[in-house]
């Protein structure tokens, strides 16, 4: 069964992870640093949630080299990202794009935090009000008296 599945497609993949090879590294450290920034944002398509910088898959290597070529040619980081996304789609972005279908993803945590905080404040206020208005009933009064030493 597993064999049969594996036959369906040879993903251009390999494990375990590696990283950038020496022959890829750009001579200009500033450009190389930018290539790393881009590389950490690009998903290696065939290797399960890894950035292309963290993978030794041949396709990841090809993409790393491509990224460096674009940077050397004078592209900005965003232009390099757009170049790759135009070919492979939004799936290659490890940082999901901000648009209607991802608003819930991006603003969800802040929304949940806001709801949780306001629920908490509401509960506190209500509790305060409740604690002010509910007097002890006779039973409780008696117990309290007992605890306090039975003084009337």
């Amino acid at each position: 069964m597993i064999r049969a599945l594996a036959l369906l497609l040879v993903l251009l993949t390999a494990t375990p992870a590696w990283t950038v090879e020496p022959d890829e590294i750009l001579a200009d450290p500033a450009q190389e640093a930018r290539a790393r920034e881009v590389g950490q944002e690009l998903r290696c398509l065939v290797c399960q949630n890894q950035a292309i910088d963290d993978s030794n898959a041949p396709l990841a290597r090809d993409l790393r080299i491509l990224v460096r070529e674009r940077i050397k040619a004078g592209d900005s980081n965003a232009q390099v990202m757009d170049f790759v996304v135009a070919r492979y789609g939004d799936f290659v972005r490890l940082r999901p794009p901000m648009r209607a279908e991802t608003y819930l993803l991006w603003f969800g945590p802040a929304l949940i935090l806001a709801i949780a905080l306001s629920a908490l404040l509401l509960a506190l206020r209500r509790r305060k009000a409740a604690s002010r208005t509910v007097p002890l009933d006779a039973n409780e009064r008696a117990r309290l008296d007992k605890i306090l030493g039975g003084e009337p």
């Binding site: 950490q40 789609g89 991006w106």
Partner: peptide
């Protein structure tokens, strides 16, 4: 199809 990775 999107990916949600470390940057998120």
């Amino acid at each position: 199809r999107i990916s949600v990775g470390p940057p998120y």
